[in-house]
């Protein structure tokens, strides 16, 4: 069962699936707790699948914004996806979105200003690749999780 859940006594660890390090068990767990029934997981499932749509839309928008070199839009999109991925506890996706947000705001990862827009765009291009891969991983994990009740 979930090893990462050991520190948190508030959740019954026996209910917690182990979704790997890409998913924060505590955060994701509190969404699972909202389900009326563990059999169909209606609420959490709809939230998660809603997030999938949202994420894919956002990635498309990010690709477009990259083409037009619209850093501001990339900042906004990064922030947007960061919020929902964080709420679901998708740690890796969240971290990468945060990076995109920073680069879009012409900042370095540590928050210091970065004047070189080309560099920011390059970094976003790379991070976007990473986050898409991370997303694909976690999407597979979650789809697997919701497939079997």
């Amino acid at each position: 069962m979930a090893a990462s859940d050991q520190n948190d006594d508030s959740h019954d660890s026996s209910n917690m699936p182990d979704l790997g390090e890409a998913v924060d068990t505590v955060t994701f767990g509190q969404i699972l707790e909202m389900d009326d029934s563990e059999d169909d997981r209606e609420f959490s499932k709809s939230i998660v699948f809603g997030f999938f749509e949202q994420a894919e839309e956002t990635f498309e928008k990010m690709d477009k914004a990259l083409e037009t070199k619209n850093l501001d839009e990339l900042y906004r999109l990064g922030h947007f996806l960061k919020g929902s991925s964080a709420t679901l506890g998708l740690t890796k996706v969240k971290d990468s979105c945060e990076k995109i947000q920073r680069y879009g705001k012409k900042e370095n990862v540590d928050g210091t200003p970065e004047e070189d827009e080309a560099l920011c765009l390059t970094r976003i291009t790379e991070t976007l690749k990473t986050v898409k891969a991370e997303y694909a991983d976690v999407e597979a994990t979650l789809k697997e999780f919701f497939k079997s009740p």
């Binding site: 969404i31 909202m34 609420f43 939230i47 809603g50 949202q54 919020g83 929902s84 709420t87």
Partner: peptide
């Protein structure tokens, strides 16, 4: 909240 994921989760917390 503009993010519907957050919005739905938040609403759920509140309504529950």
């Amino acid at each position: 909240e503009d993010d519907r994921t957050c919005s739905r989760i938040g609403s759920k917390f509140l309504s529950q």
